[in-house]
Amino acid sequence: MRLTCPHCGNRGIEEFAYGGDADRRRPDGEPFGQAWMDYVYLRRNPAGAHREWWYHASGCRAWLVVTRDTTTHVVASVQEVAR
């Protein structure tokens, strides 16, 4: 599998570290509740398009949002996380 890093170009997956579901939002400042369970534990885990974080650990160190199909591994898009 390969990802096209916006900084480094098309690189092998071994350079990246996986960060999981990118649609999770940390409920900063909120007390314990469903939002925390959603962030830490619960996953959509779709069979199909999945937005997920990847970290270019052995490259430019950017955190990326990758849209990838979990049934085919085909990568639809790679973007740097919003700054």
């Binding site: 997956i13 999981g20 885990n45 069979a47 979990t70 049934t71 085919t72 591994h73």
Partner: peptide, 9 residues
Amino acid sequence: YNSYAQRGN
């Protein structure tokens, strides 16, 4: 990484 593909890399 998340996968339902029954094959690795």
